[in-house]
Design a protein around this nucleic acid. Structure first.
Length: 448
RNA sequence: GCGGUCGUAGCUCAGCUGGUAGAGCCCUCGGUUGUGGUCCGAGUUGUCGCGGGUUCAAGUCCCGUCGAUCGCCCCA
């Protein structure tokens, strides 16, 4: 009797999968990678930890609370402050990367990156402390056309269609529209982030509540605009009404924002993604480093999942690390959140095993034959496993079934004498005989 | 970091107004000779989150503590 068993459990806020779910997850990662490359993005990876002075530059102390620090035992024992921390997104490491390697990179630099990030926040449904982000960003030198902003949601739409996650909507807007308007109304710029954040919450808390919340900040000057935003207009109608009527007047910055959105909508339509993209001026995103286009994606049938893919434009990515001006635009899929929520909603089925065929150990004295067959099948590109202990056949089948293996090969003395093997389809339970002479080709045919 | 709920076997839970623990699922083995998801039988598993208090007696009442979970902040 051991009293020293420590209850095994995964740390809160992490996602851990069984193999047959992991296969599904891996397939999603593969799909995303393929699409990213199809659209001309290049892979990079960066370390999970960065030096703290690099990671915490832009933090006003707010991100610092969410960061996991990393420290060697020695440094800790000597009472030093940690000099490393785990990345909390892939954008800051990208900024460092681009600033560091700018002389070797070709601009506009299009990179994709799919790695885990870490946030020391309170875990909740759909909120993890360790999760995957799948990012694409384009970084320009000095300037970067808004045409790049327009292309981002097209890539995402293509991916989400492929992933079969159900109906989704990519909300897009442009911060210049509202901030330009606020500037024109001579609203104190310190209030902008607060205002935008309140408006951003509309879907969650309702428009009346938003009006109430912003009242102390700006009075009622936004009420007409808010009334407009909650109407269920088409993208075209929204643009049209904004350009004619809703705004009391349109300044240069607002104009620019509207033009960029128009370009985005046109691009999306040209590239077949127009139907899933929605111009929604209420989307502003919390992060204050976005300066233009912003994106936020929801599943239509599961809005409560939260955003599964967000991003936006930032005018100067790496100002902390270089004097070069490096504007960029990027978007990030929160794959862990997406996957976990889909799983919770019963939308994820166990995948078949990556093992295609199990060679059962019918008769241990025929082991050499099993090894030879396995070797041939593997050469032919078939994932093959040999059951290496002579257990009862039913146990071997149970094993294969539980592991999700589709086929079993049985060969005992009888089959060997006849020059055949038995191939059993574990789902249909059908069993066929295959001649050893044409074993590989017949099996390839049978199981594919 | 702040607020609400909960904490009994690996999982889901039962345990009436206090008398020293149970069900189902899962898991393992078996139902004789080379064929699995059903069925039948047998078996393993708990310091009832932890610490203290009240009591002859506490899983059951009280206090504390830790953990989980939901909401806020923020975010994928």
């Amino acid at each position: 009797m051991s009293n020293h068993i420590i209850t095994p459990k995964t740390p809160t806020g992490t996602m851990e999968l069984l193999p047959r779910e992991q296969i599904v997850f891996q397939n999603m990662l593969d799909t995303i990678r393929q699409k990213f490359e199809r659209y001309g993005f290049l892979p990079i990876e960066t370390p999970v930890f960065e030096e703290t002075n690099i990671l915490l530059t832009k933090s006003g102390g707010d991100t610092e609370k969410q960061v996991y620090f990393v420290q060697s035992t020695g440094s800790r024992q000597q009472g030093h402050a940690p000099d490393l921390a785990l990345r909390f997104d892939l954008t800051v490491p990208l900024a460092r990367y681009v600033a560091e390697h700018q002389n070797e990179l070709a601009f506009p630099f299009r990179r994709y990156q799919m790695q885990r990030v870490y946030r020391g926040e309170r875990a909740q449904k759909g909120r993890f402390r360790e999760f995957y982000q799948c990012d694409i960003d384009v970084i320009g030198r000095d300037n970067l056309s808004a045409a790049y902003d327009a292309e981002m949601p097209v890539v995402i739409a293509d991916i989400f269609r492929d992933l079969k996650i159900g109906a989704f909507t990519i909300n897009v807007s442009n911060r210049k529209i509202l901030s330009g308007y606020m500037k024109d109304l001579q609203i104190d710029s310190e209030k902008w982030p607060l205002l935008l954040r309140e408006i951003d919450k509309a879907d969650k808390i309702g428009w009346d509540k938003v009006k109430e919340n912003i009242q102390p900040l700006v009075g009622k000057v936004f009420d007409e605009l808010l009334d407009f935003m909650q109407q269920d207009y088409t993208n075209e109608e929204r643009i049209r009404y904004l350009e004619h009527g809703v705004f009391s007047f349109i300044g240069a910055q607002t104009r620019e924002g509207l033009d960029e959105i128009k370009l985005l909508l046109k691009t999306a339509t040209d590239m077949g993604a127009g139907d899933v993209i929605r111009f929604n001026p209420a989307i502003t995103r919390g992060l204050d480093y976005y300066t233009g286009t912003v994106y936020e994606t929801f599943l239509n049938d599961h809005k409560n999942f939260g955003s599964i893919c967000s991003g936006g434009r930032y005018d100067n990515l790496a100002s902390y690390y270089t004097k070069s001006k490096l504007p960029g635009v990027g978007i990030s899929i929160g794959l862990t959140r997406l996957f976990e929520q889909m799983r919770h909603a019963g939308l994820v089925n166990n995948a078949p095993s990556t093992v295609k065929i199990l060679i059962t150990m019918m008769d241990e004295t025929l082991s050499s034959d099993y090894r030879r067959i396995a070797t041939e099948l593997r050469k032919a590109g078939i994932n093959t496993e040999i059951y290496l202990e002579q257990h009862k056949l039913d146990k071997q089948f149970k094993y294969a079934d539980k592991a999700g293996i589709g086929f079993a090969l049985v060969m005992g003395g009888d089959e060997k004498a006849k020059g055949v093997v038995a191939l059993k389809n574990l789902q249909t339970r059908e069993q066929t005989e295959i001649k050893q002479a044409s074993l590989v080709t017949d099996i390839v045919k049978a199981i594919s």
